[in-house]
Nucleic acid binder design. Structure first.
Lengths: 221, 221
DNA sequence: CCGAAGCTGACAGCAAGCTGAAGGGATTTT
DNA sequence: AAAATCCCTTCAGCTTGCTGTCAGCTTCGG
């Protein structure tokens, strides 16, 4: 697997590079965001290990930029800050996993393999459900070929439902994916988003299972 | 999948139990190590979620003991301490993964699925009984390949009967799973739901054991 | 053939869900 | 800085259809 490592700490960077290389991957190691940017555009990687604290900017900004452009290779965040807010922001920004420094190198190998495996299982170029198409990589939705713009929360609901298409998803589960653990909500916010999504994507896109939750059809396996 | 949750925090424990149950797993939730010890020996679980700080001892000691005895079910550690030493000790003690509190519940689901996949536990594809298929994870039921929509109560009855397929389940037991403890019912509600389910799933799906209760066939193990 | 147990159609009440509107916070534009 | 815009959350009133109950019927065992 071709991996890009973005890490400005020389000691840690070298250790990671050697360990990942020992696992049989090809590794390029860069220390600056702008270099990384160029390398991603020109080389193309299958996985990115991204430190968040870099001399020329925030790693999260790079991550967000990648996702905005539709680049959907797995990204694992490396961070010394282990506050929840940072991790959640990272995951919300499109990271697939994170490692809190300092971490065990063999642990990193496991995470790496897990993320890669997760991706191998879902190489989703875009999922068609009725006349609606959902693309996780690009975070885009179309209806009858026409693009539909969604807000962040709307997208979160769509993603949750479509990733579990064919299954009934409880309102509480949707809430959990909308608000990180602990952030209770005291209203019918989920119902409101379902309502808006139906207006945008068609009444039949989301079906109600009274007392159980919501579901979207599974137009494939 | 049959999962044992060992967690002494009541709020977090309940949240985890509900979320894991919503994913279609069977969950037993215990708060003490000695109870957990006994449950593992007598019941047998396919996966263990283990909090490290417990009132009656260190979770890691249980983990080490399990491994020493050759028990090799996957174990995921839950810990509030995110010092690397603890995590490493956990991994070295034979844990398969860990979650640092507080964590996002959907993240937990992903970890859980990843660990289970690594172990080769395929999430239940659905249980076939005659021409009816029941999928606990998705909360869906099909008959002759066609999806059947059930109401919340109907689903509760189906789940109760199918989880105990092959056995006769008393009406009072079904009631208990329909209405939380104590809520007595003063009618033949169970009969009514059985009737409705037979209309939807076929007369022979549920057989009557006069004077004893109801049962569904066990068409597999 | 009788009594008990179980079955099922009908229905009123009510809980669950839907949705338009409004206020406030955050971000962008002027 | 002010204004404008967008998005999120909440709320209230409305709609929907699930739920528990009952009554009358059927089935079963003896």
């Amino acid at each position: 697997m071709r991996i890009l490592l973005i890490e400005d700490d020389a000691v840690l960077g070298a250790a990671i590079r050697d360990h990942v290389a020992a696992d049989g991957h090809g590794v390029d190691w860069l220390m600056r965001l702008d270099e990384a940017r160029a390398a991603i555009d020109s080389v193309g990687y299958e996985l990115v290990l991204l430190d968040l604290n870099l001399p020329d900017g925030r790693g999260l900004d790079l991550l967000k930029a990648l996702r905005d452009e539709g680049k959907d290779m797995p990204v694992i965040i490396l961070t010394a800050q282990d506050q929840v807010a940072v991790r959640i922001e990272g995951l919300n920004s499109g990271a697939d996993d994170y490692l809190v420094k300092p971490f065990d190198l063999s642990e990193m190998s496991a995470r790496l393999a897990a993320v890669a495996r997760r991706y191998g299982n879902t190489p989703l170029p875009g999922i068609a459900i009725g006349d609606v198409t959902v693309d996780f990589g690009r975070k885009t939705v179309t209806r009858q070929g026409k693009p539909v713009t969604l807000t962040a929360r709307e997208w979160a609901v769509v993603e949750k439902l479509v990733r579990n298409r064919g299954a009934v998803v409880g309102k509480d589960q949707i809430e959990d994916s909308l608000y990180a653990f602990g952030a209770e909500i005291e209203s019918n916010a989920v119902e409101v988003y379902v309502s808006r999504l139906r207006k945008k994507l068609g009444r039949e896109f989301i079906t109600t299972a009274r007392g159980l939750g919501y579901a979207v059809e599974s137009r494939d396996g």
